[in-house]
Amino acid sequence: MIHFYHVTKRFDQYSTALHDVTFHIEKGEFVFLTGASGAGKSTLLKLILRQIQPSDGQVVVNGRNLKSMRRSQLPFFRREIGMVFQDFKLIERMTVFENLSFILTVLGIPPREHKKRAYGALRAVSLHHKLNAYPLQLSGGEQQRIAIARALINEPLVIVADEPTGNLDPDLTQEIVQIFAEANMRGSTVLIATHDRELIEQSGRRVITLDRGRITDERVAVPQRAPRVESIFGIGG
């Protein structure tokens, strides 16, 4: 589903964000991407969404080679990806409902269905009572969950999340990872970039580790006992 072939990304001659990165994520996988700040995680996610192009190598997502994709195809490609941004990217002048409704308008969903679908997506992140609030009236964690609801509203083929639990307390982290796990069970391929070592280690999922733009480790996490997330992934015990 997501394939990187010898991808290098240079911003200028002194700054190379990714060096010869190759990995493959198959359809239906749930993968964590980790690494220290500046390791290249966000650059990698931007390449998946084709916000930027690789300097060398190829990125193929859902069978599309992003380097040769026509600009006119880009919006339709992006609709197949549910992206959760680190800075949420909610439209501040719109209410929570309008933020979600806008996505549904983009997708061509009739307005009569917007309320029902927005309510359903918000219920999944336990924020259905915030339908008429504006993003700036919400806490960081709540905005994060709205951004997740927006990413999942269309049941996308691929879910890519950049630090989706960065602003959440442990209980909410569990809840959010549960939501991603459920989407994964429904067939979405999930890639989550995170610093949260505990979350990763207890997941039992594949982990790709980046360090200064290079993949330094690629393994399946082995969960320890009594983790806070073990029940989510149905492991441990």
Binding site: P75, F77, R79, K89, I91, V106
Partner: peptide, 15 residues
Amino acid sequence: EEIDIMRLVGATERM
């Protein structure tokens, strides 16, 4: 900023 967000969530240029 809003236009950038619209592009990232798949809005066409026409939209």
